[in-house]
Each structure stands twice: as C-alpha cells, then as structure tokens.
Write a protein that binds this DNA or RNA. Structure first.
Lengths: 194, 194
DNA sequence: CGGATCGTTGATCAACTTCAACGGTCGTGG
DNA sequence: CCACGACCGTTGAAGTTGATCAACGATCCG
C-alpha cells in the first residue's frame, strides 16, 4: 500500500499491510480548492488534518479586522487548533487552503477509536506532537530574537521555493508585518547586494 | 503511592501500584537551589524534567548578551528543549531554577525503556505533548496579537500570585521588553485606576 | 474594457529601545 | 554590627523600528 500518511507513519513505527488499509479507511479524503475553510474561528473544532498535497494555513482575526497567519502546513504536516481539538471546544483559529490541496481528516471520536484499535499509533502521535512542540519552541525563539527584517531574510533563504508559491501579503501576514513594510524591506534588500 | 508525577499521570491513564513504583524508580529526583543550571545552551540535551516543586525557566542568549526567557514551568509541567532532546542534539536553550525546586528527570534511553516497559505511558506523553503544542499555538497568538503593554496587563491579571514570586527583570525578560519599559508600563498602570 | 486586488511609495505617528544616571535594598566580609 | 559593593528598579532624553494613512500603477480576471 502506498499512501502519503502511511509512508509518514512508517518513518516512526512499523505497520503491516492490513493494518495500513484499516488505518487509511478511518480518514476522510478531502480535495479542496484554494481558500476553502476547514475550520472557522468560533466554531467547534472537530478535526485534525494531515496534508498530503498543497498547503494549509492557521490564522486568526486581529482586533483591527486583518488576518494574522501563525502557521503554514505543507505536505506531511498535521494541522488543527490542538487545544480546541483536545477539549472538544471552540476554536480560536481558522484554517484554510493556500493552494488547491488534499488532506486526510479525522475527528476526535475517530481518532480515539483508531488509537484504541491500533495502539502503535500512540507512539506515532506522541512523536509527532513532541516534534511540533519542539518546533513551536524554536518558533517562539525566532519571534523574540529577530527583527522583522531579519525574519524576512531568514525565511526567504530557508524556504525560497515556498516563498514563490505564496502571495506576498500572506508572507507579510506570517511575518507579522504590514505589506507596506515588507515592500520597504524588499527594496532595501535589492539595493544592498548590488 | 502518593507522588506528584504519579498523580499527574493518573489524570490521563490508569496505573496500578506496582507499576507506579516501577515508574518512579526510573526517575532521578533532584533538589536544586535557585539559579542551578539543568541545561546549558550548546551542550547536548539529555533530559526531560518534570517539576514537582518550585519553578524552572527556559531561556536563550540574545546577540546583545542578555537572556531572553521564553517559558516558565511550574509544578506539574514538563520542560526541556524538545527538539534537541528528541534528536539527541545540541540545545539551543538553557534551563535553570527560578526558585529552590524539586524535579524528576529522565534521559532519552531511560524514557525509551520506560515507554517500552509501560506502554500506557505512550498515551500519557502523547496527551502531554498535544497539550503543550496547543499551548504553544496560543502563545504564538498572544505574541502576534498583543502589544507589550497588553501582554503585561494580561499576564498579571492571569497569574497575579506567580508575578509576586518572580523578580521583575525576569517578568520583563519573559514579556520580551526591557526592564526600563516595564517600569514605565507599571507607572502608567498605577496612575490610571485612581 | 472595467473593476477589484495586489504591490509600492512617501509622510506622519506610535511603540519600544538604548544609554546614562541615581536611590534603595540586600547580603557579605571586615 | 556596620559598611561596602552588587544588584535591582526607576527616570528622562534621544533614537529606531515598524504602523498607519492616503494615493498611485500594475495586473489579473470576468
């Protein structure tokens, strides 16, 4: 069986063929268009999503009405409002698609049952969340350490191809700056290297 | 058996008496003084720590030489540089004690063996990391959403007793502002409510 | 062709930092 | 027990970073 999620799980734990087929059958495959909302801030958060193609984003609405992007999820990443998901509570974030995407989704009861039936996955999800937790620590570090200009140069050198894929206003939103200021940074960056 | 860690684990999974005793025996109990370093940025990160008494902090050194605190861990919280711990790699954070504290520590091999011997704990750690991951998402949200002044008023109203326990320069470091500016904020806050 | 959306530019403004200096407090050694 | 020094919190002036607002050009899409 070849499936992006199974491949990903197998990087962490072993899974035989029949179990793999069972696992996959528990997920709902969604092919979604750009800008499709998978979660709306204020609604109950019921699903975790695994991205097999495309890109999702996590964002919230600031007081001034603009969207603030806090995470992108590319292929092989899990995304949800994890607090709200765990507590079966109301989401403080929205999720939508940055590009046409394919995701595998599972709700809380489905996940609970899956973990009861296939206990090796406890380990898989433990490792996934541990990794995400570590990534969040480094993320917070960058937010404290770097000026917005440094965040920009750091981000485009780390993920040049990804920056080509997304519109500039989304990059500005992720960096936490206004599109105007991003423009200014880019102009300065163009002048320097000459 | 009564032990803070066992009590905490039992909030998430069931554990019989003999297993509990076994679990506890895998951990090293450390009673440490204020300012004791449990992890040094640049050293290999070998342990995860569970706080049973007191308070730990996670921080790193900024270019200008000042310490930037990114997390506090009170009773019943786990703390480590989770990326470095998982990868058996070099830490990008330091950890020390804010107060005289007691922690239960375990290294990577010890944890691996513990999880192999007591598989219920996979679920416990999955839930712990999921919760921490959700907390990190909200943390990032606050960093983007609030001005430093709002962060201050939000934090002291949320954790008034904790703010009494720590010196002001640590609070400033956690909020990501200079002690001077924190002083100014406090002065303004004093004038307003009269 | 027409309208919305996106990126850019420049001027003004608010948030926060840096630096230098001073007073209070606490712990330590004489 | 006192005195000294280190450290902490505060104040004020000047400087930086990044936001806001208004306006304009370009591009994309119907």
């Amino acid at each position: 069986m070849t499936n992006p999620l199974i491949d990903h799980i197998r990087k962490f734990v072993t899974l035989d063929e029949t179990t793999s087929a069972d696992v996959i059958s528990r997920f709902k495959l969604q092919k979604i268009r750009k800008k499709t909302r998978l979660l709306e801030e204020g609604d109950r958060c019921r699903h975790m999503h695994f991205v097999t193609k495309g890109c999702l984003r996590l964002f919230f609405l600031k007081q001034n009405g603009t969207q603030q992007t806090t995470q992108f999820a590319l292929e092989n990443w899990w995304l949800s409002d994890f607090n709200a998901f765990a507590a079966h509570g109301v989401a403080s974030f929205s999720v939508d698609a940055v590009e046409p995407s394919e995701v595998l989704s599972i709700d809380a009861q489905g996940l609970e049952k899956l973990l009861a039936d296939v206990p090796q996955l406890e380990k898989y999800f433990r490792l996934i969340h541990q990794k995400a937790n570590g990534a969040a620590q480094r993320r917070v570090r960058f937010l404290y350490e770097l000026s917005r200009e440094e965040m920009y140069t750091n981000f485009i050198t780390s993920y040049p191809e990804f920056c080509q894929r997304i519109p500039q206003y989304l990059l500005a939103s992720f960096l936490g700056i206004t599109p105007e200021y991003l423009s200014e940074i880019r102009r300065k960056a163009l002048l320097k290297p000459v």
